[in-house]
Design a protein around this nucleic acid. Structure first.
Length: 468
RNA sequence: CGGGGAGUAGCGCAGCGGUAGCGCACCUGCUUUGGGAGCAGGAGGUCGGGGGUUCGAAUCCCCCCUCCCCGACCA
């Protein structure tokens, strides 16, 4: 039987589509650009949500919910914001069978509604900082949609905060970048990321600074995994968010906003997937171990059920596959496509000698293990798989990243990966030229790869790549 | 919006004037079950829509719609 997937080397975008179909992650919705997230895809998203949500709460933010409909006039209050988003807005002009007096925008992001309430809630320095997060869907009308990566409606988390001082706001934006996003990407998704800030061209509409996390996919292209913005006082002034300081003066707040979306599911597919399907890092996987009952004979069912219990007691997320009416080969392929990190095959043949077969998805290794040793061995496999996926992605990124000196050398390197070039050698004009060639400056960093402040700092490096 | 393709069974496709087909998937039965099982039987279609040419149109002509790929914007 041939693989159900187009090999990555043959056609990477086609492979990506095949994985989504075959692993039952998502379908296209009836309206162009919309997406139906199927149970397996949603389970993965729920795991991402849980990991992000824990860290967001640890950073002190509370969840709340704001409406999906926003008065059109709200968006117009911040000049850059409206200019940035107007091309991709969905606008409702009819409701209840009548033309609306003021059209209503379906939120593309919630800065405007949320800040209109921040203005109401914030009176005093004692009300600060105000740290709010919301889990929601947003709509940005897309001309060229791709499942998970770019859809007209997507799910995300958006954080919005207000602070008394600029340094405090900046520190919070960076804290989210590091403690929420970077930690989740690296420790859970096992995806190495570069962090830096966006050029003026790539910055969020209405922000004074956009911090970003950029990852390299299996084909060398870049994907933005999350962003954390410093909004300065732009929205504070547009929405009159003022507070009485300790000195009794009226001050505008300093703000941040930050988001990560279902695009992360796409990132996971493209960062770790292989020609046999998805490969989920154990820390993320909704099912870490699948126990496959090969045949319902010779006490195999009892042994499989007992192993499921043992593995669960050891703290793993476990599923029993006892669909013995479906051939073993088919079931094996299914779990490989879905990317479950570890598989335990329990059948009468092995069991006769007190053994089962352990299969590791990431490296496709297979070995016999005594029933009594399964829990310990699985734990080792899961830890090793998590580590190996991160190492593999890191090696690829290192291999495909090259320092270059000038704009002329960028295209060749960026065609296959990341070109790191002095920002001085690119500049705003060079950035526009690169855009014509399909390249973009993913982020700016200090010379040692650390975070830098402004675009005009000396010695900045630009990371240039093709991007999703 | 500019350029290039495609709409036929759930999915992938063939057929290109003369009875609507193939592979996979699906249903039933039997045999199977340690890497996508085999055999037999079965169900499933306004051939994207409208108009025209013709004795006869999935097939030829005209109009419309939709989708996909490549270029200008984006989590």
């Amino acid at each position: 039987m041939t693989s159900p997937l187009t090999p990555r080397a043959t056609d990477f975008p086609r492979w990506y589509q095949d994985v989504i179909t075959q692993a039952e992650l998502a379908d296209n919705g009836p309206v162009r650009g919309t997406m139906v997230i199927r149970p397996w895809g949603y389970a993965i998203w729920e795991r991402m949500q849980a990991e992000l949500d824990d860290r967001i709460k640890a950073a002190g933010a509370d969840n709340a919910y704001f409406p999906i409909f926003i008065p059109q006039s709200y968006l117009q209050r911040e000049a850059e914001h409206v200019e940035g988003f107007s091309p991709e807005l969905a606008v409702v002009t009819y409701g209840g069978g009548k033309q609306l007096e003021e059209p209503v925008v379906v939120r593309p992001t919630s800065e405007t509604v949320i800040n209109s309430f921040f203005a109401k809630w914030i009176q005093s320095y004692r009300d600060l900082p105000l740290l709010i997060n919301q889990w929601a869907n947003v709509v940005r009308w897309e001309l060229r949609p791709r499942l998970f990566l770019r859809t007209s409606e997507f799910l995300w988390q958006e954080g919005h905060t207000a602070h008394a001082t600029e340094p405090e706001a900046r520190e919070y934006a960076l804290r989210i970048l590091r403690d929420v996003y970077l930690a989740t990407m690296v420790d859970v998704l096992a995806v190495p990321v570069l962090t830096g800030h966006k050029t003026a061209r790539e910055r969020f509409a209405g922000a004074i600074r956009t911090w970003t996390l950029e990852a390299m996919m299996g084909d060398g292209k870049a994907l933005q995994m999350g962003t954390s913005h410093e909004l300065g006082q732009n929205f504070a002034k547009a929405f009159a968010i003022q507070f009485s300081s300790e000195m009794g003066s009226q001050e505008y707040v300093w703000q941040t906003s930050w988001g990560a979306s279902t695009r992360l599911v796409g990132a996971l597919i493209m960062a770790h997937g292989d020609d046999a399907g998805l490969r989920l890092p154990p820390a993320l996987a909704p099912v870490q171990v699948v126990v496959v009952l090969v045949r319902d004979e010779g006490g195999a069912r009892e042994a499989a059920t007992a192993l499921v219990d043992d593995l669960r007691r050891a703290g793993h997320r476990v599923r029993l596959d006892d669909r013995v009416g479906t051939s073993f080969g088919r079931r094996s392929v299914e779990w490989e496509l879905k990317g479950v990190p570890a598989r335990v095959d329990v059948g009468p043949r092995d069991l006769a000698s007190g053994q089962v077969t352990l299969v590791r998805r990431d490296v496709q290794s297979k070995r016999s293990v005594a029933v009594g040793g399964v829990v310990a061995e699985v734990a080792l496999d899961l830890a090793a798989a998590q580590q190996a996926l991160y190492a593999e992605a890191t090696a690829r990124q290192a291999e495909r990243t090259q320092r270059v000196k000038n704009l002329d050398e960028v295209a060749e390197v960026a065609a296959l990966g990341f070109a790191v070039v002095p920002w001085d050698a690119v500049g705003t004009a060079g950035e526009a030229e690169l855009a014509n060639g399909g390249f973009s400056v993913r982020c700016l960093q200090a010379a040692d790869g650390s975070l830098a402040g402004a675009d005009d700092e000396p010695g900045l490096l630009a990371v240039v790549a093709k991007a999703y």
